[in-house]
């Protein structure tokens, strides 16, 4: 049996919000997907969670048009573009190594704080990479999506998370603050 040369398409696309919340006591950060923007502050044990931002987002699955295989990406919070901010960061190393092949590196983020334990598997990131490359004119350049665990120190990373913040704000966002 020959393996399917998958042709991926986006399916089950749902528009909603990535809610970023922070606890004023433990300074922890949590993120989750919500169909509706939420602004309520609430307590949980010793923590008081308040909403930092509602970022418009999209969640989706991929489906192969040929073999109908479906791959779930509901645990993907977003993609971060590597801005080459830490020399010895593995993501930046990959960016440098692949630059001659005109390949741009992105890191896939899951929702916090569970992302590190339940990382999006390499196989699924490969599928995500294939999907975006299939949509692109790959004679010009390619993209490659890596797990965010390769980032040397997330708290120092200046990568650019591709998401929609400040959309709901009545004031223009003069300067976007890092959310974590």
């Amino acid at each position: 049996m020959t393996q399917c040369q998958h042709a991926w398409k986006m399916t089950n696309a749902q528009y909603g919000f990535t809610v970023f919340e922070r606890c004023s006591h433990c300074h922890g950060v949590r993120t989750y997907y919500a169909a509706q923007d939420t602004w309520d502050e609430y307590r949980e044990g010793g923590c008081t969670w308040s909403i930092v931002e509602n970022a418009q987002t999209l969640r989706f699955d991929l489906e192969c048009e040929k073999c109908q295989q479906q791959v779930d990406f509901k645990d993907l919070m977003g993609l971060m573009y590597c801005t080459s901010c830490m020399e010895d960061c593995e993501v930046e190393c990959a960016q440098k190594a692949l630059a001659p092949q005109k390949t741009w590196i992105l890191a896939a983020f899951g929702f916090l704080p569970h992302a590190p334990e339940t990382e999006i598997s390499a196989a699924r990131l490969e599928i995500l990479t294939d999907y975006f490359n299939q949509r692109r004119d790959t004679s010009r350049s390619r993209v490659k999506i890596l797990p965010f665990s390769l980032i040397k120190q997330v708290s120092l990373c200046h990568g650019e998370l591709i998401h929609d913040i400040g959309m709901l704000s009545p004031e223009p966002f003069p300067e976007r603050k890092p959310l974590f």
Binding site: Y15, F17, Q36, D37, N54, Q56, D164, G166, M167, L168, S169, P170, E171, P172, F173
Partner: peptide, 23 residues
């Protein structure tokens, strides 16, 4: 889709076309 722009540049009695589905 950017609400700060709607407030800054939108003229009264207009119709808003937006992809931002929020209250």
């Amino acid at each position: 889709d950017l609400m700060s722009d709607v407030l800054a540049f939108g003229l009264p009695n207009s119709l808003l076309l937006t992809g931002l589905a929020s209250q």
